[in-house]
Computed example of a mutant assay.
Amino acid sequence: MEIIIIFIFGLIIGSFLNVVIYRLPAGMSLIFPPSSCPSCGQRLKPQHLIPVISYLWQKGRCAYCGAKIPFRYPLVELTTAFIFCFIYLKFGLTILTLKYVLFAVFLIPLFFLDLENYLLPDKLTYPLILVGIFINIITRDLSWKNLFFGVLTGFGVLFLLALVSRGGMGGGDIKLAAGMGAFLGFPFILETLFLAFFFGGLTGIILLVTKKKERKDLVPFGPFLIGAAFLTVFWGDEILKWYLKTFFF
């Protein structure tokens, strides 16, 4: 029963995160005006805003003008619901579940904003850092040393990379990595960065070989950081043990 409640809660939060993803780049308020169709401007009624169900019932189209609704809307809702459930199954009804649910609430919109708009806005990355520090004061699952070096490593590694590459790494990526360091701490932020570079590099090679991208084309790095962060949250210990056992023992 608890898992069903958490899944429904995730769908509801995911619906709000869709608002963040749509309105934040446009500089709109997240609260006012009420939700409306981007195509015809008609204000939507409650029955049009039920997560996933409304999309399926309306066959992915606006109930008024028939304009196509992006598939991203149910995707974000379902992604949020499933991630919340995975967090609950991993940590149970503990304070750590609250910590990582908050982590996900920041990471999910950042993932889609960077993927769609090449944007990691300060309005999300700065609060990510502050909330990460604050929540660790409550949970105390990280020592002050691990918290400090987590933030410093996340910020420092990408900042140095940005200097060396002369702009190859954006400021949003640097602040995102610092925020992830506040939540994950040291040494897990190092693991996250390694996974992000590995999968990001592999994807870049595939895109070049298949000629989907040219060398000068931009590829957002935020989604790789965020994907790696979720891997670390769920399987960080196992990945670290496997790595140490394989290469050092």
Rank of each mutant, 00 (worst) to 15 (best):
R23Q: 07
K123R: 04
R166F: 04
A228G: 06
I5R: 15
N18E: 02
L231I: 05
C40R: 09
I31W: 06
L110Q: 10
A162H: 03
L158R: 08
L96N: 13
I129S: 00
E77I: 04
A67M: 04
W242C: 00
I226S: 12
I135W: 11
F82R: 05
P38C: 06
I189A: 10
I13Y: 08
M180R: 03
P33N: 06
A26P: 01
T192R: 02
L142F: 13
V219T: 08
L158P: 11
Y118A: 10
K123E: 10
A81K: 02
F230L: 09
L30W: 06
G201Q: 05
F84M: 10
I8N: 05
L44A: 12
G150K: 07
W57T: 05
F188M: 12
E116W: 00
I95D: 09
G41F: 04
S15K: 13
Q58K: 15
P127I: 00
I8P: 02
I83S: 13
P223W: 02
F224V: 05
F111I: 07
G185P: 12
F183G: 03
Y100T: 10
G179E: 04
K212P: 01
L110W: 02
I50P: 06
G41I: 11
L107T: 15
L98M: 08
R72Y: 10
F230D: 00
L190Q: 08
F197N: 04
W144V: 05
I138P: 03
Y22E: 01
L78H: 02
I12T: 09
G132L: 03
K59S: 07
G60R: 02
W144H: 13
F248L: 09
V131R: 01
F112T: 01
T97Y: 11
L218W: 03
G41N: 11
L195W: 00
T125K: 14
Q47D: 06
I6D: 12
V157R: 12
F221P: 13
T139C: 12
P109D: 10
P34I: 07
Y118S: 15
T153E: 07
L158E: 14
V151H: 01
G92R: 08
I12N: 07
K45W: 03
P51Y: 05
F7A: 03
L130G: 13
L128M: 09
V76S: 06
L113I: 06
Y55P: 15
S35H: 07
V52Y: 02
M1R: 11
F7T: 04
F106V: 13
S143N: 12
F199M: 03
L176Y: 11
L176S: 06
P220C: 10
T139W: 13
L24A: 04
N146M: 09
K216D: 08
S165K: 12
Q58A: 14
S35Q: 08
A63V: 14
G168R: 15
G156D: 05
S36M: 13
L130S: 10
R43L: 15
L158S: 08
I108V: 11
L75C: 07
F188H: 14
F247W: 14
E191Y: 02
F221Q: 14
L202E: 00
V164L: 15
A177I: 03
Y55T: 15
V219P: 09
N117I: 01
F186W: 12
I6R: 07
F249V: 10
I226P: 07
F82L: 15
R23P: 01
I13M: 11
M169D: 06
L119P: 06
H48L: 06
V209F: 12
F134G: 14
E191A: 03
